[in-house]
């Protein structure tokens, strides 16, 4: 028996919007720790890792570890039928081939049940080693989204270079080049607007903008985004979900031949 009740249903809607363009089908894993997912995009260039900790739910019942295969587009469609302020409950009986999404409006006078078929998905869990990253940038999530969107109108790839002074995003295309530098900020009064750089070593890596633009669908989940890079690892783009966990995207760099 599985029963997860989330007071902020809008959060689950945002989570699905943040994953559905990157991954078609995925297994959600439910354990006493929380509700999680790890999945790669079809070309195995990017990986998304989601964790919604059990403590973040108003009620969390998961009698045994279960893995539920879902089509993320279909799940997003069903969740779009929930109001942003609705309470969302996920329910599944042991051995059932479907999951029920229950939506309750804030005044509790409208209750909706949506039942979705589960799928059998061959999951490939990858071991993600704990790593010390050479450079970590924390910046406003909306600013990062804006930069990725703007640069993708000029080129297909972005060179991200981190130094002690700031982070530089560069691209080039048929029409010309673009270069955006975000300098580290020193203000303390508005931490959500700060650009913070923790650098052990300067890093310069090239990534496909198409994927970064897909990751920025998670922007409504967090005010800040953390970008971690090492020269020999996929980059990690993390959006922390307050009180619940995180959504992390891993992206393999472009490699010089």
């Amino acid at each position: 028996m599985l029963e997860l009740r989330l007071l902020q249903g809008g959060l689950l809607k945002k989570v699905l919007e943040a994953m559905k363009d990157l991954v078609n089908d995925a297994n959600f894993d439910c354990s006493p720790t929380g509700f999680s997912l790890q999945a790669m995009d079809s070309s195995h260039v990017a990986l998304v890792s989601l964790l919604l900790r059990s403590e973040g739910f108003e009620h969390y019942r998961c009698d045994r570890n279960v893995s539920m295969g879902m089509n993320l587009n279909n799940m997003a469609k069903m969740l779009r039928c929930a109001g942003n302020d609705d309470i969302v409950t996920l329910k599944a009986d042991d051995g059932s081939d479907c999951i029920t999404f229950m939506f309750e409006n804030p005044s509790q006078d409208k209750i909706a049940d949506f039942e979705m078929k589960l799928m059998d998905i061959d999951s490939e869990h990858l071991g993600i080693p704990d790593a010390e990253y050479q450079s970590i940038v924390r910046m406003p999530a909306a600013e990062f989204a804006r930069i990725c969107r703007d640069l993708s109108t000029i080129g297909d790839t972005v060179l991200i270079s981190v130094s002690k002074e700031g982070v530089q995003f560069s691209t080039r295309g048929d029409m010309g080049t673009a270069n955006i530098v975000c300098r580290r900020t020193t203000t303390v009064d508005k931490p959500e607007e700060d650009v913070i750089i923790e650098m052990e070593e300067p890093v310069s890596l090239t990534f496909a903008l198409r994927y970064l633009n897909s990751f920025t669908k998670a922007t409504p989940l967090a005010t800040q985004v953390t970008i971690s890079m090492s020269s020999d690892l996929p980059m990690v783009i993390e959006y922390r979900i307050e009180g619940m966990g995180y959504i992390r995207y891993y992206l393999a760099p472009k490699i010089d031949e």
Partner: peptide, 14 residues
């Protein structure tokens, strides 16, 4: 141009 890397060459299946 540079070649797109693959996640599976960095993270191993478990």
């Amino acid at each position: 141009g540079p070649k797109q890397g693959n996640i599976l060459s960095f993270f191993k299946k478990i």
